[in-house]
Nucleic acid binder design. Sequence first.
DNA 1: TTAAGTGCAAATATTTTGCTGTCAC
DNA 2: GTGACAGCAAAATATTTGCACTTAA
Lengths: 152, 152
Amino acid sequence: MPLPQTEAPGRLQAELMSRGLRMTRQRRIILSVVETAKQHLDASQILRKARKLDSQVDRVTVYRTLSLLKRHGLIDELDLMHMQGEKHFYERRPQRDHIHMACLRCGKISEFESNLFDRLKGQIQRDCQFHIVVTRLEVGGYCAQCRTASAA
Amino acid sequence: MPLPQTEAPGRLQAELMSRGLRMTRQRRIILSVVETAKQHLDASQILRKARKLDSQVDRVTVYRTLSLLKRHGLIDELDLMHMQGEKHFYERRPQRDHIHMACLRCGKISEFESNLFDRLKGQIQRDCQFHIVVTRLEVGGYCAQCRTASAA
DNA sequence: TTAAGTGCAAATATTTTGCTGTCAC
DNA sequence: GTGACAGCAAAATATTTGCACTTAA
């Protein structure tokens, strides 16, 4: 029986521990915030949510933990086309890469998986002899709703 | 007869003037730096090169001009997988979108055009009803040379 | 016990803004 | 002549670093 898409919480924590890293109170909190986020969060939002759970979490620890997770390939960093200043957003690395589409009018972020994208990555690896570690495909434009609204 | 790939310099300048924008001494210099760049430059590098041509160019003017060019869709902003801090890099918007590949070992940036990428964009527009204005596909990994070197 | 991790303060890096004076058209 | 633009200073934003203290293993 295949596992459901939404894995049990604590996966990030298990991954870090299996790599021999120390599981501190602060890390546990930050990991749970990242893991249960319903949208893409930036460092300040992660800090705020972490402090709701435990006021003793420092901004620097958030940055250091995000950097750790990124180094270990457990989260991906997004820019979302720089629509909200120069913030970076984070999400748990998905099982299958997806595309981020940012609506330049309403700001909505949508995600899209595509076989063509998977094939494109294969083509890059073959044709360029390039071993892919991480990809980021971001698209800026107008979503269905805003397209219609503009036309009206 | 089709135009050659490498257009005559001054194209950016012509584009801005045709949009009714003022062509100042500073803008002319910054545009020529961006236009003749042989690699992707960030704001500070553009400033430095501009000042070699005319010491009377301010950093703020570089930022304002880059922002103007971006708003008009004449240049694209790249992050190059944040390999060199949080700088942004700029390039004239190409006639055909390409992929940027950043080697995590040697730092080399390569570019790649692909029909699959063009088809993927078409798929996004159709399947998501999303009107694409700008795309950015960046890939981090290991280039052919560094792959070999690591294996050795 | 002890090396890894945290917090605090300060530094660094990048980009933006307010305002006054200048110049392209 | 006039409104768009440039320069300067200062602010805002985002992230990193040094160092002493704390804690997980």
